[in-house]
């Protein structure tokens, strides 16, 4: 019997730190994409509530808890992220795909986290403009990404094959911000 061992995309690269900033991999157990079929948004939300105790959030928002979180990831598209893939019940009224292995997921934390992302993404992620429970599909240094606000910073998702480039750019920005704090 063959027993394949899984390896997450950032395993060899993180964790890393610079000044008061840390960057760690946060590979979830399961990510399922949910794309409700025509007119099925409400039904899909109800099915999710029943199966995972979380409903579909509005655009640009996240609902639920760490064990079962639904992140809006685009027009008519959501990711259920947590311990279990989406139940098949939801599959009747929405297109489901396993995305667990599609994404490299990392968490950037520290007071200067927003200043770091100022160097990488054109969206205003400062404390006064981007709150916990919000998410943005935007560009991270020429790459497509999903950036969600967390208690101590941000969760950043890029497609798996970009993991190394994304980690490198975030780390470089962490060092740059930290170094500039010493210049007056």
């Amino acid at each position: 019997m063959v027993d394949l061992i899984a390896k997450t995309p950032l395993a060899d690269l993180l964790p890393a730190a610079a000044g008061g900033l840390t960057l760690t991999e946060a590979a979830p157990a399961a990510i399922t994409s949910i794309m409700p079929f025509r007119g099925k948004d409400a039904a899909c939300s109800t099915a999710l509530k029943k199966a995972h105790n979380v409903e579909l959030p509005a655009a640009g928002h996240v609902a639920g808890t760490d064990s079962a979180r639904v992140v809006w990831t685009g027009r008519g598209q959501f990711f259920l992220i947590g311990d279990k893939p989406a139940s098949t019940a939801v599959g009747k009224i929405a297109a489901l795909t396993d995305q667990t292995h599609s994404w490299a997921v990392m968490r950037l934390e520290g007071d200067d986290a927003a200043a770091v992302l100022e160097r990488l993404t054109p969206v205003d992620l400062r404390a006064g403009s981007f709150f916990q429970g919000q998410t943005a599909r935007t560009e991270l240094a020429h790459m497509m990404s999903v950036i969600s606000k967390t208690a101590k910073g941000f969760e950043i998702m890029v497609m798996r094959s970009f993991a190394r480039t994304a980690a490198h750019h975030v780390l470089e920005a962490m060092h740059s911000v930290t170094a500039q704090r010493q210049i007056n």
Partner: peptide, 13 residues
């Protein structure tokens, strides 16, 4: 048309 699609390029090796 009632159709949904998403990239799974990176989901499968």
């Amino acid at each position: 048309l009632d159709v949904q699609f998403i990239s799974v390029t990176e989901q499968w090796a």
